[in-house]
Design a protein around this nucleic acid. Structure first.
Ligand SMILES: [Mn+2]
Ligand SMILES: [Mn+2]
Ligand SMILES: [Zn+2]
Ligand SMILES: [Zn+2]
Lengths: 139, 139
DNA sequence: TTCTCAACTGCAAGAGAGTTGCAAAAAGAA
DNA sequence: TTCTTTTTGCAACTCTCTTGCAGTTGAGAA
């Protein structure tokens, strides 16, 4: 992934820097999508000192390079980011109690998209689908 | 609807006021869900002078009474509100060009919810599903 | 109708996520 | 090492939404 980062940056005329490597590493090791400030905290715990503004700018760059995905969970009011490498398009479920986020490794919307395009005459480009509820521990 | 508002307010020990009537009227007449500031603008156009803070507080009350629904469209960064009366649970599609929002009078997620509950052992309470793309005019 | 008081409103200030301007620092090519 | 361009950190800012508080108003009681 580090190699891929370097190549993608170079191809885009951008530079390989400490913050970009560090942010990508944290996201690689995390099992669930992180917010900018969660990422910032984790960096501090790893004794990597990067300004929060730089975290935001880095996330924008990594997203532009197609290395991470930005997502929005319902009613959270902030973005989350996760590594794209090796993960197909999928959706999430979040526990209303503890905030635990789990992947749903499926997308049931292909047929529905075709139907909606026919009915509305829109051309569908994106969709967003998330569930929330109670995880086993919080029930 | 005006009668229903009065009754619901009374039942909740709350009062019937000008802002509450005006906000509900604007939402009743609108064909698509409005943000707080769109609502505020429309009120001003109708020469109803209500502070934006009061609009927010009014939306909270109407939501608590179950008269309106709060929703969040993907990537918009603000809430929208629509009248609940006479409308079943449904979803939306928004045009990335002009911002037009259309209702999708369907919900395809009942079976999927049961499947997810079995797979994840979460109990699903809410879901959010929206589409975005290009409306006929913007294509 | 008038009185009374809790509910409500407007204004100012604040919170939280994210963005922008700018000078100083660092990457990387020559 | 030098030079140019990109990147960073800091401060200030934007935008949506919330909170505190003093003055106003709705509506039940007298
Ligand atoms: Mn995921
Ligand atoms: Mn609708
Ligand atoms: Zn999908
Ligand atoms: Zn649904």
């Amino acid at each position: 992934m580090a190699v891929k980062l370097k190549d993608e940056l170079k191809a885009a005329g951008r530079r390989l820097t400490r913050p970009r490597q560090a942010v990508l590493e944290v996201l690689e090791q995390c099992q669930y999508p992180l917010t900018a400030s969660e990422l910032y905290q984790q960096l501090q715990e790893h004794h990597v000192s990067i300004d929060l503004v730089t975290v935001y700018r880095t996330l924008t760059v990594l997203k532009e390079l197609g290395l991470i995905t930005q997502l929005e969970l319902h009613q959270e009011g902030q973005f989350r980011y996760e590594i794209r490498e090796g993960r197909e398009h999928h959706h999430h479920i979040r526990c209303q109690g503890c905030g635990k986020i789990a992947d749903l490794l499926l997308c049931p919307l292909k047929k529905l998209t075709a139907f909606i395009e026919k009915e509305t005459r829109f051309i569908v480009e994106h969709h967003s689908l998330e569930f929330s509820g109670w995880c086993p521990k919080c029930q």
